[in-house]
Amino acid sequence: MVGTDLLKVEDLDVSIAGRMILRDVNFRIDHGEFTGLIGSNGAGKTTLLRVILGVQAAARGRVSVHGQTLTRSNSSVGYVPQKVVFEPDLPVRVRDFVALGLDGAKLGFARRSRQNLELVDEMLDAVEAAALANRRIGSLSGGEQQRVLIAHALVRKPELLLLDEPLASLDPGSAQEIIELLHSVVVHQQVAVLMSAHEMNPLLPVMDRVVYVANGGVASGTTDEVVRSDVLSALYGHHVDVLHVHGRVLVVAGESDHAKSMVADHPAVIVE
């Protein structure tokens, strides 16, 4: 197994209802890497994650984990969907929910072993949600819910964790906490993270690799390799400028002079 990538996506085409969503996608992810899947809304990020997860079929190409073609319900891949709405009255505690991450797909009855119960507690500790263990899952705030969903996905000890826009509905403070949490997961549990986001700036400090989705294709590599005017212009099919302002990155369509004068005129717009 030495030398094989954790995840390898080769020559992937994906179409839904006769419409081509992604074309000729190639990238790879190594063990214990933090990868950002960046692109605007509707670029096809969710579709790509669903293909990697094995719940959406590809028209062409191959997705492999450890060099083996991925099958559905591969326990080495964990998944946190974009938004889950839990009924407030659901009689399920956070603890029960995380435990279901372990055995929710298994048939029949069984008492959970002490070992598994300890694993659940360990995961809740890891996402700093131990205090929430006995709350109903429907009663959590957005940030709390995101932590619990991550614990639910991590409890099976996957090697790759996919997250679909985990920051989308969070306030900046909670978003920062989730990013730090995921970073520590990468560092301490040696789990590779692939998370989608439409804004790359919050991820810049922790990201090892970028997979940039636009115009039905992707560009991947380290941040410096991908987030460049020439690479992104080729991807978009028209001229794109990449500006660096106060340590942040801004991707602007159009001619560079115009964009630069915009920055000069409205610095506040750029900084957020």
Partner: peptide, 20 residues
Amino acid sequence: LYRPLLMSSISSELAVAQGV
């Protein structure tokens, strides 16, 4: 069916991701 039924009742999307 108890556990997959419970899991898919909580969230069918998560259940699918788990291989149910």
